[in-house]
Design a protein around this nucleic acid. Structure first.
Lengths: 128, 128
DNA sequence: GTACGTGCAAAGGTTTTGCATTACA
DNA sequence: TGTAATGCAAAACCTTTGCACGTAC
């Protein structure tokens, strides 16, 4: 499904995602957009996310086992994940990394992703 | 829930997982173990996986958005993922990698994981 | 007018939970 | 005997799908 029409719902989703670094779930997006467009449906959010994925305007993250998270920044970059609250933060620096041919198991490599795990500042405080 | 009793079901699951490098899903484990213990239930598989997670005898992988995958090798290591068939292969070589303090966003780092994406040999062949 | 998009509700797939029963210590 | 584990079924989630109704081109 290509994004042939920019409906108000889609515009609202795009506006919410533009520059967003929260890595929201579909439900997050739904809740946020519904504040301004109360008539929007969750199906339309999923629908739009599918369209955006296909034109590479959004990236689906497999970081959170509980739910898919979405990232409007589709440039290669890495992430820092709070193991307690599941907050996801972008890593802005390049992390040079190469997999020796001998370790590629015959795969044709197309991409890579580094995840650092830890406790975010808020969860460190809460822990005390 | 600690693993206070080693029941036949749990022994069967452990035996299946021991040395397994397939990164199976709960359903995979259920199907495999059921061949030898047809009376086992899927709930017991999830139950046992929870117990094993708590004693760090198995690791939950968030690699596959469709379902959780499990890895009995809990030592730090990285993975190679086929984007077509979702096969997951271990990377055995160490990948030196450090996140500069200035990029840690105040997180206390506890771990890391590198994922390489690509096409496995089978899916390269099938593609032609 | 026709294709596309929306919203609702239902269905699908995975994981969790409640509970009565079983079985080990 | 008491506690832990099992198995079944139901429930809870997240996500997808079917379909009738709108709406833009």
């Amino acid at each position: 499904m290509a994004m042939t029409r920019l409906t108000p719902q889609r515009a609202a989703i795009l506006e919410y995602l533009d520059g967003n670094t929260d890595h929201p779930s579909a439900e997050d997006i739904y809740r946020a957009v519904r504040r301004r467009y109360p008539m929007i449906s969750l199906a339309t959010v999923y629908n739009t996310l599918d369209a955006l994925k296909q034109e590479d305007a959004v990236m689906e993250l497999s970081i959170d086992t509980a739910r898919k998270r979405y990232d409007p920044d589709t440039r290669p970059h890495n992430h820092l994940i709070c193991t307690t609250c599941k907050r996801i933060v972008d890593i802005r620096v390049r992390l040079p990394l190469r997999l020796p041919k001998s370790e590629q198991s015959g795969f044709k490599i197309t991409g890579k992703h580094v995840e650092f795990y830890g406790l975010c500042p808020d969860c460190q405080d809460a822990q005390v």
